[in-house]
């Protein structure tokens, strides 16, 4: 067992983990962040995507011990003061989910993508989400949602914004729930 300290969605946790424990299992089973899900065992589906120190990662391909001292944001940590993140709102507004199983990973990846490219075209969105599989939507409304969110987010509202105070988010104009 190894002791790690990880900040998840703004709260600091110190836990004992086995060296082989994957970050996604640590999040789900020890921290209780079941909003992040597991869809495969070969790092192909992206359902487990979270932000680790401001970068999107597939949390099934990172060991929990590698997150020691880091900051993790999951789908559960996106809303601010009861207001959805603009990407969450856009997924709702554009019917970008059906069963919703891919959605947490898809939203986390979309935020990362918009951090890198605040104004992507359809093709760029599709390429940016290539590592995230959805079996329900055919991706069309996901692409639409990401572009819709792009129009509503100010530059710099990508994952990096999660690490600092909500001030960094002041330019974000997400709709209410």
């Amino acid at each position: 067992m190894t002791r790690i300290t990880v900040t998840v969605d703004g709260v600091k946790y110190t836990d004992e983990v086995e060296p082989r424990t994957l970050l996604v299992h640590y999040l789900r089973e020890q921290v209780g962040k079941t909003g992040t899900v597991v869809g495969c065992d070969t790092s192909n589906c992206g359902a487990c995507t979270v932000h680790l120190d401001g970068q999107s990662v597939k949390s099934c391909s990172v060991f929990a011990v590698q997150a020691d001292g880091s900051e993790v944001t999951t789908i559960e940590g996106l809303a601010r003061d009861g207001r959805l993140h603009p990407v969450q709102q856009a997924f709702h507004d554009n019917h970008a989910l059906q069963c919703g199983f891919c959605t947490p990973g898809m939203i986390m990846q979309a935020i990362d993508l918009l951090g890198d490219n605040p104004n992507p075209d359809d093709e760029q969105v599709r390429h940016g989400l290539e590592g995230n599989l959805c079996r329900c939507t055919g991706y069309q409304n996901i692409v639409k949602a990401v572009r819709d969110a792009a129009g509503k987010m100010s530059p710099g509202a990508g994952p990096a914004a999660e690490q600092v105070s909500s001030q960094a988010r002041s330019g974000v104009s997400g709709g209410g729930q």
């Binding site: 909003g35 899900v37 597991v38 999951t74 789908i75 559960e76 996106l78 989910l97 947490p104």
Partner: peptide
């Protein structure tokens, strides 16, 4: 109509069996 179901699904408040 936008879907009622979405609220929990986009915020990670889901109830998958494995949860």
């Amino acid at each position: 109509r936008k879907r009622k179901e979405d609220a929990r699904l986009i915020s990670g408040r889901t109830r998958w069996t494995d949860n």
